[in-house]
Design a protein around this nucleic acid. Structure first.
Lengths: 110, 110
DNA sequence: ATACTATATTGCAATATTACGATATAATGC
DNA sequence: GCATTATATCGTAATATTGCAATATAGTAT
C-alpha cells in the first residue's frame, strides 16, 4: 500500500500527472516563472531568488527535469537550465481542449 | 523539516501549485476526464470506472474538491460531482499566458 | 423499523516528498 | 598543485500521500 497504481492508468494520464505533479509545488512554480522571465536561461541566481537552501533548489530542478518540463546543459562554467517549450505547449493544449469540452456542455447541476 | 514552505511564496503561486498538485495523480486525471466526458454530472459510477476501492476514490474526490477543481452537491439520492469550469479556465489562462511568453523569447540555449 | 444502497470517515501500514547539513564533484583562476 | 565557486549527491528527520479494510452516515424502499 502507499504506492501509486501507475500501471492501472493510461500512458497519457500518467504523463500528464507527472507534469502536473512537478508543478504542484510553489517553489517549482516559482522556478518555472523565473526561468521564463529571465531571457537568458543561465540561472545560477535561482538560489538567491528562492527562499530555499541550495540542495533543495537543486532537488526541485531535478524533479522538473525528470518530469520533462525543463532542460539542463553544462555550459562551461555555469549550468544552463531552461524551460522545455514543447512540454509546456503540450500541457497548454490539453487544458485548452478540456476548456473547449467544458464549453460544449449543456448544464452543470452544481 | 519536511513541510512545504508555503508562506514564502506568493498567494498565486500557492494556489496554482495546489491545483496542479491535485491533478498530479493519474487517478485524479482520470476522474476529471470522466466527469467531463459524462454530460450529466451525477457520478456514482466512478468507483466502477476506476481501478481503486471506494474509499480511495472518495478520498481523491475530496482532494479535487479541496483544490477547488470540482464541486459537489448532495442531490437527493445520489451525490453530484462536477468540474468547476472557472478553476479549469484559470489554469488554462495561466498556461496560455506562459506559452505566449515563451514564444516571445529569442533563443533557448538548451 | 429494517434492509439496502451509496458515499464518507477513521485508522493504519507502505511509500513518497520536502528540506537541509554535510560532503562530493567539476570547472576556473592563481 | 591549492583555493574558489557553482552545482549535485548523500543521508536523514519531519511530514505528506496513497490505498484500503472496517466502520459510520444518510438516503430510499419495503
Amino acid at each position: 500500500m502507499g504506492a501509486t497504481k501507475t500501471d492501472h492508468f493510461s500512458e497519457e494520464q500518467n504523463k500528464l500527472a507527472v507534469m502536473m505533479k512537478a508543478l504542484g509545488h510553489p517553489a517549482r512554480i516559482a522556478i518555472m516563472e523565473h526561468l521564463i522571465s529571465v531571457d537568458s536561461c543561465i540561472c545560477g541566481d535561482l538560489v538567491n531568488v528562492l527562499p530555499l537552501a541550495q540542495p533543495t533548489v537543486s532537488q526541485h530542478l531535478k524533479e522538473l527535469k525528470n518530469a520533462g518540463l525543463i532542460k539542463g546543459n553544462i555550459e562551461g562554467t555555469a549550468i544552463c537550465y531552461c524551460v522545455d517549450k514543447d512540454a509546456i505547449a503540450e500541457l497548454q493544449r490539453y487544458l485548452a481542449n478540456t476548456t473547449l469540452q467544458l464549453e460544449h456542455k449543456e448544464k452543470s447541476c452544481c
